[in-house]
């Protein structure tokens, strides 16, 4: 179906309002019955265009004082595990955009004022040395174009009440992204078995999740190659300097006010994030 521009804008506005006030909304599939994955990506793009064009003082996502509108710093791949694909009834990953306003610097707590029902997951982040081919990109191309990898924590959240999602709802909602933070010791991808590396995530001192690199589509670089091909088909390039969050390496866990979470990827180091105690 061809959704009218005003319908797409209306959903994007509803999701943006939900985030601004930390008040969830009904699923986009109910706002626009018959919503296709393609149209959901149009909603995502409309939402990103709003945020990028937004004046800083209007952007409630910005954690600190800012003197510029948010800029694109990379991309995320989602729905990379079999468990999540089964949950959403969708046999492919999805993707979203990463803005600099979503990145939490090392040692800074994650703000809670815009979070609704946040969860957190461990991932491997790729930082690109060179642009990725838009056509036929392979995992080998990804490894070759990667400057370094870092352990990452991604805070995901849904602006849709009770995580009542199908694939189109999360796609419209920028793949349920919220914040991310990166480790600070760059790892040469040539020295890391990113398929077999273990993942251990502790929450408030207890191991809350564990997994391995292969949990992400069999190999994290496969997820990045998929993204380069998929974005490439839409005329978008993963550029030099871009960050790519490649997908969860194990189960996702709740991220509540005051939580302290650390993820260790065997051979790639540790990354930690604390959530502010208040809202």
């Amino acid at each position: 179906m061809n959704a009218a521009t005003n319908q797409i804008e209306a959903i994007a506005e509803a999701l943006a309002e939900a985030e601004r006030h930390a008040l969830p909304v009904p699923p986009p599939r109910e706002m626009l019955p018959g919503l296709s994955v393609e149209t959901a990506y149009q909603v995502q793009r409309a939402g990103m265009a709003r945020r990028i064009g937004m004046l800083p003082h209007l952007n409630a996502v910005v954690p600190t004082q800012r003197d510029h509108a948010p800029t694109v710093v990379g991309h995320k791949v989602g729905v990379t595990s079999r468990a999540v694909q089964q949950w959403l009834g969708f046999d492919q990953p999805d993707f979203g955009v990463l803005l600099d306003s979503m990145q939490i610097p090392l040692g800074v707590p994650c703000p809670g004022s815009t979070l609704i029902q946040a969860r957190i997951e461990a991932e491997l982040a790729f930082v690109m040395r060179a642009a990725l081919p838009r056509q036929g990109c392979t995992p080998a191309d990804v490894l070759h174009a990667t400057a370094y990898v870092l352990p990452a924590l991604e805070v995901i959240d849904s602006r849709i009440a009770d995580w009542n999602l199908t694939i189109v709802d999360t796609v419209a909602d920028n793949a349920s992204s919220a914040y991310f933070t990166l480790g600070h010791v760059p790892i040469d991808p040539r020295n890391l078995d990113m398929r077999l590396m273990g993942m251990k995530l502790t929450r408030n001192g207890e191991v809350a999740a564990s997994g391995a690199g292969a949990a992400c589509l069999g190999h994290p670089a496969k997820a990045v190659a998929w993204l380069a091909r998929t974005l490439g088909a839409a005329g978008v390039e993963i550029e030099a300097g871009h960050i790519v969050l490649s997908g969860a390496l194990g189960p996702v866990v709740p991220f509540l006010p005051g939580d302290v979470v650390s993820a260790t990827l065997s051979g790639a180091g540790t990354v930690s994030l604390t959530r502010e105690a208040g809202r």
Partner: peptide, 9 residues
Amino acid sequence: LVEAASSAA
């Protein structure tokens, strides 16, 4: 692939 886990479990 049916399992991807860590000895942390």
